[in-house]
Design a protein around this nucleic acid. Structure first.
Lengths: 127, 127
DNA sequence: TCTTAAATGCAACTGAGTCGCATCAAATAG
DNA sequence: CTATTTGATGCGACTCAGTTGCATTTAAGA
């Protein structure tokens, strides 16, 4: 598990309390989080949140995923892996079992799968 | 190429002029389109556009893709194929050379790849 | 042709994300 | 250790894609 200190070392910005707290949440999360998700845990203005996210993206610390609910979800860019977005319940999950896609002349940084997650699939079967 | 008539046959809504014209644009497009993209071609109120898109999605005629620019792009759900979103120029492309991903207990309806497209890759190399 | 239910356009609204600005807190100089 | 500077923060106002309510229009069936 990447520590907050390691992630911030040698980066081109100030190490504020707010940033440490914010990254701490991301480091300890098992799934990508939106501003909505973190604001109950961390009292941070949304302008500050998004400005920090932009900084983190520039420094390649964090990755963004756009979900089906028109919100952006963020996660530590620790190791690249695919994501699954459920079009029924809008949940965003990390898919760890290696999905690797290559395409000539393209640089692929992210793979996103959309469809119906096991939970919603089960719920449908019962009807 | 799927015709507009075939797509609308037996569906649960009225065959208005506006709907035929709208679907005609999607049928003849080689890439997913946003409201911005179609409004210059077709004079249709955005409320009507999005209401029709919702209908088409319910009827499984059309597919939505959220791009990096926070806009939704739509296309005929004719045959399923992967999409590539360039994180540099925000273009959305269809990737026709079969990328098939399966995942146990998941229903996968869409594969989205993010990264840098050949054009932007080339532009970067020149710097 | 008449009726009616659904489709349209307009205007007002929503909500995620952005921007300007005044204040505040890290980092660095003195 | 204090002073200075520069970037970070919070607030409020704003933007813009997408939505909703409502009055009007149009497709479809009687």
């Amino acid at each position: 598990m990447a520590s907050v200190k390691v992630l911030l070392e040698g980066k081109d910005f100030k190490l504020t309390q707010a940033r440490k707290a914010l990254l701490d949440i991301f480091v300890n999360s098992t799934k990508p989080l939106s501003y909505e998700d973190i604001k109950s845990t961390l009292s941070m203005d949304k302008a500050t949140f998004y400005r920090n996210i932009t900084k983190f993206e520039e420094q390649k610390i964090i990755n963004a995923i756009e979900s089906h609910d028109k919100k952006r979800y963020f996660e530590i860019k620790a190791k690249s892996h695919a994501h699954f977005i459920c079009t029924t319940c809008n949940s965003v999950e990390c898919i760890k079992n290696g999905i690797y896609v290559t395409l000539k002349n393209y640089t692929i940084s992210n793979v996103i799968l959309q469809g119906i997650c096991p939970t919603c699939n089960l719920a449908n079967d019962k009807n």
